[in-house]
């Protein structure tokens, strides 16, 4: 297992897991989200290949109401 930070909270994931695996595990694989890993955007088409590393810091966002 490796430890990553997702939206400010520490989380354990399997070593070798990808962004796609993480989104599936979080139950948001179908949602329209955007992902940043270590302050760099991860493109949707790369979710399946983008491997997670110990200590990675991720931000997962979506659209909410705003003006």
């Amino acid at each position: 297992m490796i430890t990553i930070t997702v939206n400010g909270e520490l989380r354990q994931v399997q070593s070798g897991a990808t962004v796609a695996d993480l989104l599936r595990e979080l139950g948001i694989g179908e949602r329209r989200v955007a992902v940043e890993c270590n302050r760099e955007i991860v493109k949707k088409e790369r979710y399946g290949q983008a491997g997670l590393g110990d200590g990675d810091v991720l931000e997962i966002i979506e659209f909410v109401g705003g003006g």
């Binding site: 997702v6 939206n7 400010g8 909270e9 979080l26 139950g27 948001i28 949602r31 329209r32 989200v33 955007a34 931000e59 997962i60 966002i61 979506e62 659209f63 909410v64 109401g65 705003g66 003006g67």
Partner: peptide, 19 residues
């Protein structure tokens, strides 16, 4: 229509997205 960008609330993943 304008929308805001916020962290996905991981504690309530089942709620339907505003979009």
């Amino acid at each position: 229509v304008t929308v805001a960008v916020r962290r996905v609330d991981l504690s309530r993943g089942t709620e339907e997205a505003m979009l």
